[in-house]
């Protein structure tokens, strides 16, 4: 089999995952997109493993590890999402922004204070 097929499929899948991570609003969907990215990597690894006829089977071993890591991550990730939902009543990634540092409000308040002081 041409190696290009699985390799191209993998990188396309990865890019789809990238798009999903950046475009989705619900954190669970973002997590799903991350899973797509990881799976793309898995396909890559398996294909390279078979192509290289690696006697150590590093690719497949790493694939198995990646699957496990992904499972662990999604478990913990969902727990975090639920915690966010419980405390912030939302699961939209762009609404969880309380810790940002933009401080436009702060700046405005400061400016007002300065005006008053002058």
């Amino acid at each position: 089999m041409h190696l290009a097929y699985p390799a191209v499929l993998a990188v396309l899948l990865f890019s789809v995952g990238v798009y999903g991570v950046l475009a989705r609003r619900n954190v669970v969907l973002v997590l799903m997109s991350v899973e797509l990215m990881l799976n793309a990597v898995n396909l890559n690894l398996v294909a390279f493993d078979v192509w290289l006829r690696d006697t150590l089977h590093a690719g497949q071993a790493l694939t198995l590890f990646t699957i496990t890591v992904a499972a662990a991550e999604i478990g913990l990730g969902l727990a975090i999402v639920l915690l966010v939902y419980r405390t912030r009543r939302t699961a939209a990634v762009d609404e969880v922004t309380a810790l940002g540092d933009r401080h436009e409000a702060d700046d405005l308040a400061d400016a007002a204070k300065e005006q008053a002081a002058a």
Binding site: V21, V27, V30, V34, E73, L76, G77, I80, V81, L83, V84, R86, T87, R88, V93, V96, A98, L99
Partner: peptide
């Protein structure tokens, strides 16, 4: 706060 920061870290 903890949840939000963990979420960002995690993602």
């Amino acid at each position: 706060r903890g949840a939000e920061s963990a979420l960002k870290f995690f993602l």
